[in-house]
């Protein structure tokens, strides 16, 4: 049970032939949190969209539990992969609960799963509020709750900047939830810009630049200070905290 990316290249037709991804080979394992890192336009979102089947790779393939994603229909993919997009969108005045229920569109209805997802994201208090009236941070939590309600046992959860507009408390709550889901057997792949958060929560990292894979492996190996400085163009420093653990701090260019 895993997500395997094999030689994936993707070109958007509108970019005049420049590849957004070039020959990417990576694996995400169940029970692990994998962070997808890289500067803007590195190919993080494109890679996630190839994995969920929203984009068909120009070359190579994505294997979901050993089966090419292109051979799986939408319903089957939904039972194996849940996805949280970069920008939440619900073009109707559904309540928070109703949005979370959409996660069960291709799956049997489950009030227990909906209630649990609302509880895990601390949304019970606003379950009856219309989604369009929420702040962006709250909408991100609702979108994550929708994906959690969809996630099947041993399934894969892909997230694209899921906490970019959340306050620190809820960002930490979500990180703890993702860790719990991984511990229960989910494969968690999360594209993010916050390297400090990535360093503290991810087991593995895929580091991308200009559509190429710079490094992939355990977080401690990939997040080498020298490599990060080359890729991101700013200085980094590991700072040891009084408790004994270290945090990654970004400096100036």
């Amino acid at each position: 049970m895993s997500v395997a990316v094999r030689g994936v290249t993707h070109r958007y037709r509108h970019t005049g032939g420049d590849a957004a991804l070039r020959g990417i080979n990576v694996d995400a394992a169940p029970g692990r949190i994998t962070a997808v890192l890289g500067p803007n336009a590195a190919g993080k979102s494109t890679l996630l969209r190839c994995v969920i089947g929203a984009l068909t790779p120009t070359a190579g393939c994505v294997l979901i539990d050993g089966t090419p994603a292109s051979e799986l229909d939408a319903g089957t993919l939904a039972r194996r992969i849940a996805y949280v997009p970069q920008r939440p969108l619900v073009a109707a005045a559904f309540t928070v609960r109703e949005v979370v229920e959409l996660g069960r569109y291709a799956l049997p209805a489950s009030r227990r799963r909906i209630d649990l997802a609302l509880e895990q994201l601390q949304l019970q208090g606003i379950a009856d509020r219309p989604f369009p009236l929420l702040s962006v941070g709250q909408q991100q939590r609702v979108t994550l709750a929708r994906a959690v309600a969809q996630l099947s046992s041993g399934g894969h959860l892909l997230l694209d900047e899921p906490a970019s507009a959340m306050d620190l408390y809820h960002a930490h709550t979500c990180a703890a939830l993702l860790r719990r889901l991984a511990d229960e057997g989910a494969t968690v792949v999360i594209a993010m810009h916050d390297l400090t958060a990535a360093a503290s929560m991810a087991d593995e990292c895929w580091l991308l630049r200009d559509g190429r894979l710079v490094a992939a492996g355990p977080t401690s190996e990939v997040m080498d200070i020298q490599r990060l400085q080359e890729v991101f163009g700013v200085e980094f420093e590991w700072v040891r905290r009084p408790g004994g653990d270290s945090v990654l701090i970004a400096g100036s260019p």
Binding site: D73, A74, R79, Y105, A106
Partner: peptide, 19 residues
């Protein structure tokens, strides 16, 4: 129900199983 799911963004709608 399909139209309800289609109110989500394109990628999200597909990810919940909508063709």
């Amino acid at each position: 129900r399909a139209m309800d799911a289609a109110t989500l963004g394109d990628d999200e709608a597909r990810s919940v199983g909508l063709s």
